[in-house]
Design a protein around this nucleic acid. Structure first.
Lengths: 401, 401
DNA sequence: CGACTTTTTTTCGACTATAAAACAATCATT
DNA sequence: AATGATTGTTTTATAGTCGAAAAAAAGTCG
């Protein structure tokens, strides 16, 4: 329900508004912030000087004048702290260290061999990578604002338990993370954090109501509502990959049947092309290039399979259109992006065919822009997002840099 | 995106908070309001006296004391204005006049014979009913705070155009309504307004994240998110009845195939029971009682059909669970309510089978509480909802009563 | 050099909520 | 019946908020 408000809330909100604009448009100026937020120049000056004093924003240099006083440049205090993003994917764990302007300072990959990684192993791997990267950068863990972690499952109980049926995690405990590293940790579903990245820096910039779908081996989605991620009662909203578009259909690795994943996931499509006997494990990307090439050459089996993807994906997306009424659908994921690159127009046509006229005619499909790095980048937005929304009283920012 | 805030917004919000509590808990007292909203006694007194001066709230009488000063009663100024609710259903148009405490003062029904009513006819019928009811009540149209209208379709363009593919309305224009009657009109999708009614007075009271489904001839849904109705980009979100759970399947009246409606709608189920040759037009409710009775008697065909409803409805609901992650699902609509009355437990079991473990285990199914009147009641909440959210500077309330 | 423009800061007024004190009205107990 | 405790409501004083307007700063241009 709506909570009561007081004058303090006004400040918190406007601080967040200003900080957010600086972050997403750095470098900028006070007058620009005023125009963009609608706040008066007086308030902008007032709040900005607070933020500068606290170390979240840096002032320096001027923009050229065109007939008046020069605008003083304000920008993110990029060296005030570090932020770490980590993403547990299906084939690897990626970890990156960024400065506060999201420039990457170090990156590591940790391959997952067995498809099903144990929770303890994942935690240990991430811990080890972070420790070694910080050592390499000669940075103490106290300089790190936070660690954002994207996981391939549902995050519940305030971000400590992870449920990922497809990799065998049932209530995996991630609560001790921050203690072990001495860094505040924030955990979120990987599809959601990837969506957050596209919303800040990619194809979903400025989108108020949108859906991002990630299609790879499996299928996930992130929902943007009023410019924010939609979470639902316990943060698991948007689990599109296991919605059902068929009453029976192929078996899914979640143990059920008819899931979207089993129609549009990469290996499902490859199996449909060459039959289930030929195994693609470990070389799915090759397989996808092969089927696309065969499709371009007019191979009938490839044509059937690709047509099937467009039809099934179009249908599954039309359900999202009817239910969420988005203005934009961003198609991503390594397989989804390949499909979108070749077949965006037919896919959009399929969506409009299956969706109701009114929401269907308004929705526009676009490709994702950030590519495979989005997951780690998105994970790194978690601590920043928290910082901005809290209005940034971050003590960590004031520690010596 | 988030808008800037100022001290005025604080007042608007707290006014809305107080007014809302008075409305939904009338009669109440200042101290109760303070406890419920978290606002200080001083603020409550201050705002409440404004509301009383403006005519939205009435003071009178006292509650018994149990060891202190008596609480002064404050309540909705029920006779300060009238409000009209109208609902265009599939078989009839219902219109009711309420006072501000939602006590019904007059009610009318207008049967729709041809299944497909013309827009002009619907407008004329509603206008005529409203005029005659007001005459009967000896009330001038200037005494009416507003007319809320629920329609069986998508409402766009700020509430003036209605798209209802299944009744043949493509961009039907409802913009002149208020002028003709001299009453401010508010239009919304019928499923949404019904959901609003259950949220205020029925099974969805206090639900922050919920889904209400309405199953009759067709199927609709209203989504509650953070205690408010979810609308999406152009207010059409929640069109669950035409999401697809099958790749081909039976033809739907929307012109597509595989829609949820074609599996769980009343006539679809009756057709499945007795074959498409027996027509149930005009006696669907009889038919439903007949099939339920046959089902209780162990009739195999009825058993198959009812099992099918539970399975298909469970599957279609599980998609909503995965996508919206609700804490509660309210099952309503005339057919849905009958099913829920007999088969709520198996239905919940089916939902949990098909949904992912985590969101599935948390969701609870309940029956709707308000019955068929909810649609008209919900429509009447539209002007009140607007009044409350605006913080109620309503001039209409000050006109002589 | 002076007029004009643009950006930023300062000053001041209008509103808000709340804590604390004051006031009001009741009950319970002696 | 008097007294004190308790509960509800109003008044008063205070701190914090934004924004309009004035002032100041720092340019451009003729």
């Amino acid at each position: 329900m709506v909570k009561k408000a007081s004058v303090r809330d006004v400040r918190r909100r406007n601080r967040a508004l200003i900080l957010r604009h600086v972050w997403l448009n750095t470098p900028t100026s006070r007058s620009e912030v005023g125009a963009a937020t609608g706040l008066s120049a007086a308030t902008v000056t007032n709040v900005m000087n607070e933020l500068i004093a606290e170390g979240a924003v840096r002032e320096g240099g001027f923009l050229e004048s065109d007939g008046g006083r020069r605008r003083a440049i304000v920008s993110v205090a990029e060296d005030a702290a570090l932020v770490v993003g980590a993403d547990v994917g299906e084939t690897q764990i990626g970890v990156k260290v960024f400065d506060l302007a999201f420039r990457p300072l170090a990156a590591r990959q940790y391959p997952i061999k067995s498809r099903r990684i144990e929770v303890a192993d994942a935690r240990a791997a991430i811990n080890a990578q972070v420790v070694s990267m910080l050592a390499e950068l000669k940075a103490d863990s106290s300089r790190v604002l936070g660690l954002g972690l994207g996981v391939p499952g549902i995050v519940s109980s305030g971000g400590s338990l992870v449920h990922a049926e497809v990799v065998g995690w049932h209530g995996a405990d991630f609560s001790g993370f921050s203690d072990e590293l001495g860094i505040p940790a924030y955990i979120d579903n990987g599809a959601k954090s990837t969506t957050q990245a596209e919303a800040w820096y990619g194809a979903a910039r400025g989108v108020e109501h949108g859906v991002m779908v990630l299609v790879g081996e499996g299928a996930g989605a992130g929902i943007i509502t009023d410019g924010r991620l939609y979470r639902g009662y316990s943060s698991s909203a948007g689990e599109w990959g296991h919605t059902k578009i068929s009453l029976d259909g192929p078996h899914c690795r979640c143990g059920r049947t008819g899931c979207v994943e089993t129609f549009v996931g990469a290996s499902a499509v490859l199996d449909q092309w060459r039959g289930p006997d030929e195994t693609w494990l470990g070389r799915e990307t090759e397989g996808v290039e092969a089927i696309l090439s065969a499709w371009r050459d007019g191979d009938p089996a490839a044509r059937r399979a690709i047509d099937g993807v467009v039809r099934h994906l179009g249908l599954a997306l039309s359900n999202l259109v009817n239910l969420y009424n988005p203005q934009t659908i961003i198609v991503g994921g390594w397989f989804g992006d390949r499909i979108a690159a070749e077949l965006l127009a037919p896919l959009q046509a399929a969506v409009r065919t299956y969706a109701l006229d009114q929401p269907g005619s308004e929705v526009v499909l676009v490709r994702s822009q950030l590519g495979p790095d989005a997951a780690v980048l998105g994970a790194a937005t978690l601590p920043i997002s928290r910082l901005i929304e809290s209005g940034a009283g971050a003590e960590r920012l004031r520690s010596p840099a």
